[in-house]
Write a protein that binds this DNA or RNA. Structure first.
Lengths: 151, 151
DNA sequence: TGAATAAAAGACAAAATTATCCTTAATTAT
DNA sequence: ATAATTAAGGATAATTTTGTCTTTTATTCA
């Protein structure tokens, strides 16, 4: 569906939405560990996500790291795709045809239409904060982070 | 959504389903032109699709080319994805997590579920022949092939 | 101010995907 | 049989994506 980069970005933002506040920041290393992406690669992704502090905010120096404001949590999930330059994946033709449209439909257009609509709805109708609200996720990440944890 | 290779494969099979019969074969060059993919790259894709003549059949020599049998037209669209080794894209987690499941859902699992179901339905419930049945497609391909056509 | 910390930025490397070219094998027609 | 045609197969190259490493900049604290 998405590029690995974008998958990492989605994971990272959801993680930060859970774990951070204005005063409690999470480090790059913590993010990388949590989302299972190499640290220096994660760094590049975080740069895209924190450009202009639009989606996540970043602070350098001791005690620094990343966090999200309440305002950013109100952004639709789509904002993450936009930051990564992959928002077109929601509207793209299944066959990858540029000219495909309602007027000039590809053979799969009609059948794919409801899937596309569902995708768009998924990313436009849900905010980041909303998506980050699931409790199962955090539990699993902690299991993963310390595999040898007893019980 | 899919790799370019797979998009080409889907386009190629739908094109061949339309244009060919046991006795009327389409050449590699024709397929490549129709789907807008470089000829030698298309050749590689056709090799995957005609392996064991499972999806398309191929014939070498003068008058040769590719065609589809009525039996192949009955295959679900999914068969094309399988031939290209991308069937997992239908069932994959949006965040790309391997462990994501009903029991261990990622934050987007529940919301993505209906989209995934739609995707799977799209490729399992529709046959290649069915999908190839749209008249608009052929018209557009012919326009594209000869851009300077009068009228 | 100076040292330590943590992200930003840039250069570079590896891997995967996409694309090209050349040779071989199969089929048809002469 | 020989030549011509068309796909198969193999080797190689270009591009994109993914990943790494080093240096720079901002911030905090002593």
């Amino acid at each position: 569906m998405f590029l690995k980069t974008t998958e990492y970005a989605l994971r990272a933002v959801l993680y930060i939405a859970r774990e951070s506040h204005e005063d409690r920041r999470v480090s790059l290393a913590a993010v990388a560990r949590a989302i299972g992406s190499p640290a220096s690669f994660t760094a590049k992704i975080m740069q895209q996500l924190s450009r202009d502090n639009r989606i996540v905010c970043s602070v350098r120096g001791p005690g620094g790291g990343f966090y999200m404001t309440p305002a950013s949590r109100q952004l639709p999930m789509q904002a993450i795709l936009e930051a990564m330059g992959e928002e077109h994946l929601m509207t793209k033709c299944v066959l990858g045809l540029r000219q495909c449209s309602e007027k000039q439909p590809c053979p799969m257009h009609e059948a794919y239409q409801p899937v596309k609509a569902g995708l768009m709805r998924l990313f436009t109708h849900h905010t980041i904060g909303e998506m980050a609200g699931e409790p199962e996720w955090r539990k699993r990440l902690q299991q993963k982070r310390r595999p040898g944890l007893k019980r």
